[in-house]
Design a protein around this nucleic acid. Structure first.
Length: 179
DNA sequence: ATCCCGAGGG
DNA sequence: CCCTCTGGAT
């Protein structure tokens, strides 16, 4: 969950670089709750948005300790009460940490790629999620967004998508829009 | 709608 | 120089 908060507007490589030293120093909810804010900011600085992310993680730690016994709750409703956690992050935690696939992760990649593929016309992530839930069989709800995220990072990139190397360009109404 | 953040790529 | 990078809160 912490790594997912840090991942906002940041490459995964940089998140991994930071968490390697961050997690040994902050191994549990209490350590974030008791953290010195400035120190925490410096520890996560390379991930960007470090002041707001540090504030979120600190408040998140406090609430996890005060309300949830230092454990991460396993429901959407509870997760949404945590600082720095909205629907996207909550779906990631539910799906990857708890194996609960009641929703579909809709991040910037899923949003962009589903638009280009013509799977949705909506700009609202919640509406996109609901539309995908009607299109996809439940067994696909977990894997689908991760496949799209990988595809979005490597091929269907935001700026200059590599349509010539895309294995599903035959399915894509946006093919050639970026030449 | 805007702000938060800055390294790295084209 | 402009844009992107696994968002969320105000």
């Amino acid at each position: 969950m912490v790594a997912t908060v840090l991942s906002a507007q940041c490459t995964d490589e940089r998140v991994n670089q930071v968490t390697r030293s961050l997690f040994p120093k902050y191994p549990d909810a209490a350590s974030f709750a008791e953290a010195n804010l400035t120190e925490l900011e410096e520890a996560i600085r390379p991930t960007g948005f470090f002041r707001s992310k540090a504030r979120h993680l600190h408040k998140m730690g406090e609430r996890l300790v005060d309300t949830y016994g230092g454990e991460v709750p396993a429901t959407m409703e509870d997760l949404l009460t945590l600082a720095g956690v909205a629907r996207k992050t909550a779906n990631v935690v539910l799906s990857n940490a708890f194996g609960i696939h009641d929703g579909i992760v809709v991040d910037t990649h899923v949003k962009r790629v589903t638009h280009r593929l013509g799977l949705t016309d909506s700009k609202d992530p919640v509406k996109i999620e609901k539309e995908l839930m009607t299109i996809l069989p439940h067994e696909a709800w977990h894997a689908f967004p991760w496949r799209l995220i990988l595809h979005g990072r490597t091929v269907c990139k935001a700026r200059r998508p590599l349509c010539g190397e895309c294995p599903i360009s035959n399915l894509c109404p946006s093919k050639g829009d970026f030449d």
